[in-house]
Design a protein around this nucleic acid. Structure first.
Length: 553
DNA sequence: TTGCAGTCAATATC
DNA sequence: GATATTGACTGCAA
């Protein structure tokens, strides 16, 4: 709607606000074929080295960026379409420079304004996560992301972890300073990176930042500086509060409820965090096992029986589905890097070969071949074969076509209706059926994978290991080939990667980042893809047949 | 409206 | 104190 309006009734430049000018600049760049080429330093800081690159073309915007600094707090500034400057053609050059030269992650504060001691918040605190990346950088990073070649997320996080631990740098510092994310997010990201092709543009951002950071020869040094400054600030603050005889503020440098003088009300407004009891979780898992996508009614019942808010139940299901998916990605990666690293260029494989330094550790205990097991009722998820198998089986196809479909009937699973499950759940420790929650309860892989129910089923149904493996391996590249592709993100990435400018290559220069992805020149891969497609096709058919009965198991 | 991705931030665990 | 986990929230897309 906005586009339509803009295209049919463009306002004169002079009447546009800075923000309003943005789309036009984008259009102009797009027309020039420049959009995306120029990039600001990821860690763009006020005095970011490349800032100039953006100027020429859009002065106004440039200012916008600057001004945006005043509102950088909200993650919004960092999100999708922040006021960001565009980059001009020359920025391409800057981009390269940027990446090759030490980018100034934390500088901002260094000279200009060191992180306020007493107000450490400025930089670290505040959910102002995006602080580190003020306005312009925010946008540029997006461009960068858009043009970025396929990155080996697994390898990147691995290296980041190494660097951080080697240098005794914390996730919080790194996250807030370099990524603009909180510690929890960083932890999650580092521990469970999603494969590049599964990431949305926004989701890729942190990885691009990490890559750029890794390429910065002074990265560690800068973080160290930052760390020192923080410490100093903290000491100072502590000192002053002590001398003032006031209760110390929460030491957390980064948090700042203490902001302002009225933390009180805030505290009161805070809702206590809900913590689900183990039994409740188990019950939910069981319910999930039977119905990953419960109907509102079911949710209602579950909530009632577990004495939870329905929103809590809803959230739980959302989170659980999504986290399981993540787990599977990881397993897939591990399995892939171990199994067919050489054969495919799926992210997993790539991660294996890419990071030579890190190579070899990615996989452990994952048997390439799995027994009949993937879907055994009892789900020996803990087994090496279990998760792997699950991951594999669900690998590409499922996600591809049936991602959000109700999962296939868990093989062997009786078909109690969800209510029953809930009931069961409500009873503290009921003698429950051999559901996967048991031992491996926590093991996502043991649960029907929401992401790829169909595939899982297929696998269970007799997809041979090779096929499953193929699914996994072919996943990345194969998917695009598939009619459905791997979902939107994949669709996005592929084309992008293929037309990325050289400068970007240099940006992400590392061999692994070069996105050596040519699904086409690998016959094996093709074969696998074909295989996959046929599986998907069959599954689809089967699925549509089942639909009428509502996937009620 | 529903589901998802991405995050935050409180809390648990190491 | 650092890191991991997880319930909740936001924004977006179908």
């Amino acid at each position: 709607g906005s586009v339509s309006d803009m295209l049919s009734r463009p306002k004169p430049w002079s009447k546009l606000t800075q923000k309003g000018r943005e789309p036009f600049i984008r259009m102009q760049l797009w027309l020039n074929g420049e959009l995306g080429q120029g990039v600001l330093p990821v860690q763009g800081h006020p005095q970011g080295p490349v800032l100039h690159s953006v100027t020429s073309l859009q002065d106004p915007l440039q200012q916008g960026c600057v001004s945006s600094e005043s509102t950088p707090k909200t993650s919004a500034s960092c999100s999708p379409a922040p006021e960001s400057p565009m980059s001009s053609s020359e920025s391409v050059k800057s981009l390269t420079e940027l990446v090759q030269q030490p980018c100034p992650p934390i500088e901002t504060n260094k000279d200009g304004k060191p992180p306020e001691p007493s107000d450490p918040p400025t930089l670290d605190s505040q959910p102002a996560t995006p602080l580190p990346l003020s306005g312009h950088s925010a946008l540029s990073i997006q461009e960068l992301v858009a043009m970025s070649p396929e990155l080996d997320t697994y390898g990147i996080t691995k290296r980041v972890k190494e660097v951080l631990t080697d240098n005794n740098l914390g996730q919080r510092l790194f996250g807030e300073t370099i990524l603009g994310l909180t510690q929890g997010s960083v932890s999650d990201l580092l521990a469970r990176p999603k494969p590049w092709h599964k990431l949305s543009l926004k989701g890729r951002e942190p990885f691009v930042r990490m890559q750029v950071w890794l390429n910065d020869p002074n990265n560690v040094e800068k973080l160290m500086d930052m760390k020192r400054m923080e410490k100093k600030a903290y000491m100072k603050r502590r000192h002053s509060s002590v001398s003032d005889n006031q209760p110390c503020e929460p030491p957390s440098v980064g948090i700042d409820y203490s902001q302002g003088a009225s933390p009180q009300p805030q505290h009161q407004l805070k809702k206590p965090r809900v913590v689900l009891a183990p039994e409740e979780k188990e019950a939910l898992k069981r319910a999930y096992q039977q119905k990953p996508y419960p109907s509102p009614k079911t949710i209602e019942e579950l909530a009632t029986q577990l004495n939870l808010k329905t929103s809590t139940v809803i959230n739980w299901f959302h989170n659980y589905r999504s986290r399981i998916r993540r787990e599977l990605f990881i397993e897939e990666i591990q399995a892939g890097s171990q199994g067919q690293a050489a054969a495919s260029d799926s992210p997993s494989a790539r991660s294996g070969r890419v990071a030579p330094s890190s190579e070899g550790d990615s996989c452990d205990g994952v048997e390439a071949a799995e027994g009949p097991g993937p879907t055994t009722t009892t789900d020996n998820a803990e087994e090496p074969g279990g998760p792997t198998a699950a991951a594999k089986s669900q690998g590409g196809p499922g996600k591809v076509e049936h991602e959000e479909r109700p999962p296939p009937p868990p093989p062997g699973t009786p078909s109690p209706d969800d209510t029953g499950a809930a009931e069961e759940a409500s009873q503290a420790e009921p003698p429950r059926p051999p559901l996967p929650l048991e031992g491996p309860a926590e093991h996502p892989a043991s649960v029907p994978n929401p992401a790829v129910p169909a595939a899982a089923t297929a696998a269970a149904a007799g997809e041979d290991a090779a096929t499953s493996a193929a699914a996994t391996a072919a996943r990345g590249p194969a998917s695009p080939g598939t009619s459905a592709g791997t979902g939107t993100s994949t669709g996005r990435s592929a084309p992008t990667a293929s037309r990325r400018p050289r400068s970007l290559q240099s940006l992400f220069g590392l061999p692994e980042a070069t996105g050596v992805r040519d699904p086409h020149d690998n016959p094996v891969r093709k074969k696998k893809a074909a295989n996959l497609n046929s599986i998907i096709h069959r599954l689809e058919k089967a699925a549509s047949r089942e639909e009428p009965i509502e996937w009620e198991f």
